[in-house]
Write a protein that binds this DNA or RNA. Structure first.
Lengths: 149, 149
DNA sequence: AGGTATTTGTCAGGTAGCCTGACATAAGTC
DNA sequence: GACTTATGTCAGGCTACCTGACAAATACCT
């Protein structure tokens, strides 16, 4: 079943789905509160010191409104909390709750485990090469001119 | 702006978006009939000899119904056609029209161009290593047990 | 042959994620 | 103090995807 056909975006998408599905499934199986894919992504880009909704929107590449609703869901789930921002009253700082910390650690360890599984199949070297290639700052997509027929 | 934070699925998604956005943008700029992301993906997994809707659904990892509507859109756009299947009357063979062939060649050349741009930045070796790592048959996501706390 | 189960394509309806538009509130700027 | 900007939030709409249902063609099984 040669799913896509050797084109890079297809392969990238397939690999991403492999990780994401396994992660969601493992979290669900370990009895955690259910989270959606966009919530996971938002959760992943939040660091220790917290961030505002606008920052999170930028990091995940969606609008503030979209980020807002993902945050809202995670707050309802008890994984995030909004506290007043120390330096400005019009911002609210989004941080993980204690429960959120726990789930975050668990998710990280699942991801590490998955990477280990991958290394068993294609070799540690290949996994490192994969990381290396992917860690280039992608930036905005370039503008290419296709050959005029 | 460290968009995600070094986790593999995030990096994979970012890379994929880079390709896809550039492709869509280039197609649009060269005046082709507008196509949506899912349509592009479906278009990409269709080979020369054609396929049925069910096959396409399997390859893209969506349901028949979803694949059906993507096909429908591409038929309306004049890029695909449905012909009676030679071996069975309950199947319909989906193939590219002549116009579809043209667009497909153009898309392929844009993708090649993008890969070239990438090679200029991270080196041909890295791009090859990326392909290599991604071409592993991913299969179904594994079931992992996170360490109990 | 004939009846039943399966496969395939299709339609209808619903849900989720993302978007744009609009607006209130809080800061900075003159 | 008036004006502009930034941030958070609500409302409405679009698109991709899903499940459920069904007709038609085929395969299977006595």
């Amino acid at each position: 079943m040669h799913t896509t056909g050797r084109n890079l975006p297809g392969l990238l998408g397939e690999a991403r789905r492999w990780f994401e599905e396994a992660l969601l499934r493992a979290l669900e199986k370990s009895g955690e509160v259910p989270v959606s894919p966009p919530q996971v992504q938002l959760f992943a880009v939040l660091d220790e010191q917290g961030a505002t909704v606008s920052e999170l929107a930028q990091r995940t590449g969606v609008t503030r409104q979209t980020a807002h609703q993902a945050v809202h869901g995670l707050v309802d789930a008890g994984l995030l909390e909004q506290c007043p921002h120390p330096s400005s009253a019009r911002q609210r700082l989004i941080r993980r709750t204690r429960e959120g910390e726990r789930v975050h650690r668990r998710a990280s360890s699942i991801l590490a485990e998955l990477e280990e599984r991958l290394a068993e199949r294609i070799g540690r070297r290949s996994v490192d090469a994969l990381r290396d290639a992917l860690e280039t700052p992608w930036g905005d997509p370039p503008s290419v001119e296709p050959p005029a027929e």
